[in-house]
Design a binder for these strands. Structure first.
Lengths: 320, 320
DNA sequence: GGCATCCAAGTTATCGCTAACATTCAAGAC
DNA sequence: GTCTTGAATGTTAGCGATAACTTGGATGCC
């Protein structure tokens, strides 16, 4: 028991005793068994976060914001990645819940029915991010991908573009991509810009080469097109590079816009017009909310469902 | 006890009983407590993997290979990211070990003394990846970053370049970057290409803009330079874009090579000469080794330290 | 019928820790 | 000198599962 106290701060123990114990612990290379500790104390000291991909700087920024906010709270973040599959997410949710996280963060608002039920019944704070689901599980920190995309359409419209296409967002695995496409379709209908011109490409994760292939297909199918919105900066970049190879001037022959304000959008030539979505802030606000919700939960109170909407904005650059 | 058996397959239980239990479990939304299970069975069912960054497609590929190999083995992967800091890694190792993983994968061969000790004493299989450490903790799956970089220097030499510079690799946080720089220095000494021309830039993670800034500094400092190797494709890309903005022809004014064979190297204009390093294979072989080592451990045998060297190769493209 | 066999389900102890309560003992109050 | 106080340490029980063993009862064989 004294050892248990010595290894935990904020407990009353003689400093000499503690020092002696710590010394022994270090010599022995002893490491506390947290399974046993959690079983006894009912606190596991971790929160789970599920993201679609571990290779996407947008999600990485959100995770960074989350980690930074959680730092010092005694809560560790355990990451899982779903590969854009709600079935993998379902499995991951179950295995995470088995380990009794004190809170869980998921990406997006689309989940299996079973996932929803498990999350709801888990009794821990659940936060959906990067989206504004119609029927949230509980808390939400995100923004409307559809609105963001519609804003971009209006921006292009204000710059004089009239025959605007959309590249990507047709996989039902990437719901945020699909929302962006839906926002595009809504906006061109509102602006009376004629029928939607949508080019689909393969499954997520979104690659640069998908954008390159899509723009060729786009020009073949609708030669009159004067602008294209890509579901992500990565595909926008691929599209722009393909245009360079084919001597299609960007933005004169065709304007290309992306989504996400990845580093590449600011760094490439021409720089890509895109939508900035404050990824880091999503993470930070998620972290803050999580801490509040967990604190409430410990007091036996359940925090009311929170809906936090983060900002987004079009960033006009040379590609449009 | 019967419930415990019902939820585990391969146990002898009447199928009617099992069905009844599963039905109840689903209705109640009951989820097994793995803390308790692990405590009792001494098997936690997870392995830990630590990578420097969750936003790097090279490491992401390795993790993907690892996940794929582990799939179906009953082992879950728990990810941690160290932000290129061995102190964060140290903390992460301790908190992972507290949860008693059945194996642990770390990136690189440089760790705190305490980390090394903890890992050695943990009694679980430890695999260092992405590097060939001089004194490995136990198993290694990786390649020599220095050799890979030297190979690239020789390739540039064979193409006629003689005043070759190196951009990056000067932060001691990124040991793989530092190894690549060391390999460059060794190679230009061997080839008698005069003094090393090295431009340093900020701390990892490596950004595109760092490459852009560095190439400007490089040309200012050594105008005679005819080729530059960047520590990563990302900085190489930034450098190339900066050259485009300044009308420095690549590769005529200056050739630019990268490292890692990221998607961007194949997709951008001009395509980037780089070194491919078989990231996915590192992950797969790590996974296989891990499974073997864990199986041995369970039989009470400890697998001999394995050293697996993966291939790498220069990919010549238009930028050099 | 008697007995061996085997599958299903029940019992008990235990994993390593910590919450909660109990004890000890020294210092200070009166 | 006695009592109070409180910090330091000790004791006990229990967290929720599973390993290992035991029991119950159906089946089949001679």
């Amino acid at each position: 028991m004294t050892v248990s106290r010595a290894l935990k701060n904020g407990t009353s123990i003689a400093s000499a005793t503690r020092a002696r114990i710590i010394k022994a612990v270090e010599e022995l290379g002893y490491v506390l068994d947290q399974s046993a500790g959690s079983l006894s104390s009912k606190r596991t000291g971790f929160v789970a976060a599920l993201i679609p991909s571990i290779n996407n700087s947008n999600f990485a920024d959100t995770i960074r914001g989350l980690t930074e906010t959680l730092e010092g709270s005694g809560l560790q973040l355990l990451l899982g990645y779903t590969d854009y599959s709600i079935d993998k997410e379902d499995q991951l949710i179950e295995s995470m819940l088995r380990r009794r996280p004190e809170g869980i963060v998921v990406t997006g608002g689309r989940h299996t029915i079973r996932s929803r039920k498990l999350l709801q019944q888990s009794g821990i704070p659940v936060i959906e991010t990067w989206d504004l689901p119609l029927s949230p599980i509980r808390h939400v920190v995100g923004f409307s991908n559809a609105d963001a995309s519609a804003t971009l359409v209006k921006y292009l419209h204000s710059k004089g573009y009239r025959r605007i296409a959309f590249i990507g967002g047709t996989s039902n695995r990437d719901t945020r991509g699909a929302d962006r496409r839906a926002g595009y379709e809504r906006a061109i209908a509102e602006l009376n810009l004629g029928p939607a011109r949508v080019i689909s490409f393969g499954t997520p994760p979104i690659s640069m080469n998908q954008g390159a292939e899509a723009v060729v297909q786009l020009i073949a199918q609708w030669p009159e097109v004067d602008a294209a919105i890509c579901v992500s900066d990565l595909s926008a970049f691929g599209a722009i590079m393909e245009c360079q190879r084919r001597d299609w001037n960007v933005p004169n022959r065709i304007a290309i816009a992306g989504f996400g304000d990845f580093e590449i959008a600011d760094c490439c030539v021409p720089r890509i017009t895109t939508v900035g979505v404050h990824c880091l802030e999503i993470g930070k606000r998620t972290g803050e909310l999580l801490l509040r919700a967990i604190a409430s939960e410990r007091k036996g109170i359940s925090l009311n469902a929170q809906l936090i909407t983060t900002e987004f904005g079009v960033i006009g650059r040379e590609s449009a």
